[in-house]
Amino acid sequence: MRKTAVIVALSLIWLSGCRRGPARTNEVVAASVGKAPLNPGDSAWEQAPEYLARLLPQDLVDPRLMKPSTPEVLVRSLTNGTDIAFRLQWVDPVANDAPGAGTFVDGCAVQVPKKIEPSAPDPQMGQAGKPVEVAFWRADWQASVNGRGDTIRDLYPNASIDHYPFEAKSLEAGSAAAKEMAMRYAPAWAMGNRRVGPRETPVEDMVAEGPGTLAPAASTTSRGQGVRTKDGWRVVIVRKLPEGLAPKVRTQVAFAVWEGSAQEAGARKMRTGWIPLAVREAK
């Protein structure tokens, strides 16, 4: 009998030691660090508590996501008092990082209210007069930052191209005339709307005041880095700390994940509602 009790006790001790890492919290808590890390593998992340964010399909506004995909995302957060970093980690066995006709890319986003106030904006992209700020990361932007080129052959290696007018022999390669000619055939770029193409950051800052109103922020100051894990994505988004957020003050944060293989884009996404966001006082 005594022998059995010892075995049970030892087993319990062993089991308790199996679950390593920080305790899970019921709100997103940003731990204080000297520098908000951009690297998802930075050891500083070990100091951050973990929040398990259950995801819901966006089924409130047409077009909706009718079939749930990514069920949850693990969130950790760190702050240096100026910036706040979020690390999102989710299971996605196949990386979708190449845009194409009928092809969509993986992505994630962090949303916070523009102002900290008692009444939070609508969690679905904010509402008129109560804007939200969104920092958006995309896998194809990450691929571009990582060095993938922006020609059709980078997406379709066997593509055959006869001729582009802006690569005519009569135009000096890289000249202003050649660039002007190329821009004629890329109207989105001519409008300053570079949805894909060469990028220096995989993140874009945006603002919204309700569904369908998403617009680029005046400038993108957030940074990001996404890496593949053995079974999914681990993405860090670093943005400025929401104004007024400090220990004992709470705001909200929401997350969204797009699964490229499920043809998710725009409103078709998995998302959370508002989750309390707190900053842990520095020790």
Binding site: A101, P187, R194, R195
Partner: peptide, 22 residues
């Protein structure tokens, strides 16, 4: 570049440009 228009147009006369993203 959500490609909702590509999906919606029954005549399939909207095309997604993978190198501008629109």
């Amino acid at each position: 570049g959500y490609q909702e228009c590509v999906r919606g147009c029954p005549y399939k006369k909207v095309f997604y440009n993978p190198l501008t993203g629109t």
